[in-house]
Design a protein around this nucleic acid. Sequence first.
DNA 1: CCGTATCCATTCCGATACTG
DNA 2: CAGTATCGGAATGGATACGG
Lengths: 150, 150
Amino acid sequence: MKRTSFNDSVCPIARSLDLIGDWWTLLIVRDALGGIKRFSEFQRSLGAAKNILSSRLKTLVAEGILEIGPASDGSAYQEYVLTQKGKELYPILIALGQWGNQYLFAEEEACSRAVDRLNLQPIEPIRLHAKDGRVLGAEDIQVIPGNSGE
Amino acid sequence: MKRTSFNDSVCPIARSLDLIGDWWTLLIVRDALGGIKRFSEFQRSLGAAKNILSSRLKTLVAEGILEIGPASDGSAYQEYVLTQKGKELYPILIALGQWGNQYLFAEEEACSRAVDRLNLQPIEPIRLHAKDGRVLGAEDIQVIPGNSGE
DNA sequence: CCGTATCCATTCCGATACTG
DNA sequence: CAGTATCGGAATGGATACGG
């Protein structure tokens, strides 16, 4: 039996998780956002085996999150760059990072973080806004099912 | 060999993914945010087997994302409610939902969505802000490593 | 109704060896 | 350097049966 797939679920969260909800893919995207482009760089940064890195990159390309381009430096090899669709995953990564930073690290534990490139200042915590500008907390949000509850 | 664990990584994204980066847990949190509390309700909503639901709930409780309380209705059974730590996962879910909604659904395909509870209006797209108030896009963000690149 | 225990198929992950 | 091929072990996921 296979894992149940969510790609025909009416819930966009479920459908997203079906694509990127595994342990490696979002880390690959994280590194790609950080400017990593080459196979060996991914491998070194992630510490993943080559075969699984290869397969993940392949599916990411197939899904239109990464695309393969010619190497920017002289070398004859390809490189992997994010598409627009892939770049737009960054709020998810930042949200994960902020949550992890808050709940999974000790006070002054060494910890990488995403910052404003311009001045290297930390990014403001994510806030969700309503149409009228109110800030929305967890209790202010409700889920309207598309059809079924799933 | 086991999966490599990221819980001692210096990257908060990796550490978060180590906890919640699997296919079921975030969906459980999604349902919990939607007000689901009982075992059978989770099971019906998720369509997951009882044993795997049971194990996921157990680890979520162990991690302090859910906690077990007495049933609010008359019944003698327990129920699972989100802790603060668990509730604060909602930006991640919303980010996933917004991304999925934009890139994984056809124009007018039926699709569940999270809305402002007060007036059932859609939530504004997530924007990241710098300390000085600028809106930050994917290119405006940089990752500063804690120690190693991982 | 709320889970736990067991079983089996599938998948995943990591190491290694190999090709161009 | 950039992958592919293969292999064994581990964990996962699902169905079912069982106990409180």
